[in-house]
Computed example of a mutant assay.
Amino acid sequence: MKTLILLICLATGFETFAQTSSELFDKTKMEYKGSKIEQAKRLLRNVKMWGVIENKEPNIDLAFQNLLNSAPEISKEQLKNYLQRASITNNEICGNIDLPVSHILVNGNNVYAKYFVIHDMSTPAYENNFPENINSSTWSKNNLTSWNWPKGSEPSHSIVTRTGKSKTLNDFGLGWRATKFEKKIGVSCRGLFLHIELLQPRIYPPGNAVSAPVAPTPGFTDAQYQRLALLYICASIRKGEWLVPAFHVNIDEGLKDGHDDPQNFELDKFTSEVLRLIALIKTS
């Protein structure tokens, strides 16, 4: 279940962001306008409480920008070796890395997933305080067996607990919808986005149990960033090209009852972890 928030866009003088993300989506190419770095700068803008998007470029590490512009320097064999050494199974990384990611059809041609969308669960909601153990295995919500959905109603491709454990809900090879934007565009868009839910509880008031806006600080644990980075690498290696990372809030920007996630996400931690993990995998 997600916190449904009406996105409030701040009016500033930045011409780059004069239009919403959905308005800058090119339906002929089935991608956002601009280079991969320009797309990332738009889709990784920080979000504050109540879904207020900072209408300025995020500070993206230059090394990560260079990564987006380059071909992957690690092979599937190196990644497999790393996964084997770390005892990480396919059920933790959304499937076999030898298989392709999901795709859509554009003019009769397969166009493979381009965007890696980061969400937060926005649940469970607490009225006053977070439990002291939300980052511990003793918090029941960090038990992956506690998260189950009827087949076909899963919220994403994967869920990552605050202890860094992940569970495949849908293979990266399966097209899945997890944003309002995809629904607005239609079925032709299903398969262009890969979705990851990071476990994050919320507090109310303000708001109520449905719209609980207050996230913990820090928003996510180091273990979550580590597993999120691994999922990003696995998805990108399956495609053979670095995907453009994005925040859910920016995908749904300007749409009625859009979302406010991920809250308190530290972009530098994610990009640093991706770069660190790539260097580690190279030695596998």
Rank of each mutant, 00 (worst) to 15 (best):
M1K: 04
K2A: 14
L4C: 10
L4Q: 06
L10E: 15
T12Q: 05
T16H: 11
F17S: 15
A18D: 15
Q19P: 05
L44E: 08
L44P: 07
V47K: 12
M49R: 05
L68H: 00
N69T: 09
K76L: 02
E77W: 00
I88A: 12
E92S: 12
I93C: 07
C94G: 00
G95H: 03
I97F: 07
L99N: 04
H103I: 07
N107P: 10
G108W: 04
G108L: 10
F116W: 02
V117N: 12
S122N: 13
P124F: 03
F130K: 04
S146R: 09
W147A: 03
P150Y: 05
G152S: 06
H157Q: 02
H157V: 13
S158L: 06
I159E: 05
T161Y: 05
N170C: 08
W176S: 01
V187G: 06
G191T: 07
Q200A: 03
I203L: 15
A212R: 03
P213D: 02
F220S: 10
F220T: 11
R227K: 15
L230E: 01
Y232H: 11
I237N: 04
V249Y: 00
N250K: 00
G254I: 06
L267D: 10
T271Q: 04
T271R: 02
R276V: 02
L277H: 10
I278H: 10
L280H: 09
